[in-house]
């Protein structure tokens, strides 16, 4: 039997994304590259990311990574957006190396969101 292309984390995050959707009245950014699209929407309170939601068009690894990222940053400080845990995402979700570019699009979205919230 050939290996399942998705580990359990990808399956769980893809199947039940708790952070899918948008934040009403929140700041929204869109990254569109490498044939995928990621939209992030954030609500801010007291310098913290009180809510972070995503919408995405792409493969299961990208959608799972978007959910992973929202869960990772939500509730933390805006400044945390400056650091993107690329290696951890690749490892936790066992992202195939040929999909690295798609995760970088997600990183672009996070950085874009960080810049927009700084202003």
């Amino acid at each position: 039997m050939s290996a399942d292309p998705y580990n359990q984390a990808v399956r769980d995050l893809f199947t039940s994304p708790a952070h899918a959707g948008g934040v009403a009245g929140g700041k929204t950014v869109l990254a569109d590259d490498q044939g995928v699209r990621v939209e992030l929407s954030a609500g801010v309170a007291g310098g913290q990311l009180s809510a972070l939601r995503f919408r995405a068009w792409g493969c299961p690894h990208l959608l799972a990574a978007a959910e992973w990222v929202c869960s990772h940053y939500e509730g933390g400080p805006i400044g945390a957006l400056e650091k993107f845990p690329n290696a951890r995402i690749m490892e936790d979700l066992a992202v195939p190396v040929e999909k690295t570019g798609r995760i970088l699009v997600l990183e672009d979205a996070i950085q874009s969101l960080g810049r927009s919230l700084d202003h």
Partner: peptide, 11 residues
């Protein structure tokens, strides 16, 4: 479900 998840979908 995938259309709902895609950017541009109505919340």
């Amino acid at each position: 479900r995938l259309r709902e998840l895609a950017p541009g979908a109505v919340a």
